[in-house]
Amino acid sequence: MLLTISDLRKSYVTADARITVLDGVDLKMGAGETLALTGESGSGKSTLLHLVGGLDQADSGHIMLDGTDLTQLDDRARAGLRRGTVGVVFQQFNLIPSLRVVDNINFQARLAGRHDAAWCADLADRMGLTPQLNKYPEQLSGGQQQRVAIARTLAPRPRLVLADEPTGNLDEDTAATVLSLMLDLVRDTGAGLLMVTHSQILAAQMQRRVHLRKGRIA
């Protein structure tokens, strides 16, 4: 099993009250599996994704990723996990604006120490980015930027790709194209894909769908 989440809990303290976001989540995911995580706004989807990506820390419970319990790792170890084992595709792309497209695509693979120039070039080619390689992100459209972000995430060949509303900023046609490309590449690399989405259409393209309601798997 690539990912095993057990009794995961997370809450936030606001000025007025303590808000429980995840209230005992259990979830399993196999290697190479694609899974859609759906739910209403505020149901805890993004929080779960952030915890699995090591971007945030759970209050309790366990996240076993490829044999490692993330909840026991310190900040530095979680950063190491993000460099190579997990790849995150953000809704806001989060490219580095001062680097060219080619440098953005290579970036995470270089961070992970697994840079493969041929593979990165292949990724760019399959994403239709070859003519844009020497441009800067601000010179690209939203769809192109998201394709750069996906290529960057896949460049180090992560075991698990996490995608948080990856097409939320794109129009329907572009969203379909981008998702299709992402699914193809994920399949080719053998990575698992856990995608948060509101869209039932996109969720339907995944192998499995999990619905989150009030912090629990429905």
């Binding site: 900040d75 950063a79 190491g80 460099r83 580095i96 604006p97 001062s98 961070l111 992970a112």
Partner: peptide, 15 residues
């Protein structure tokens, strides 16, 4: 700040 956040999200330790 956005770049710093991205770098950290991509696995660069804060220190």
């Amino acid at each position: 700040r956005p770049v710093v956040r991205t770098l950290r999200a991509l696995g660069v330790p804060l220190r």
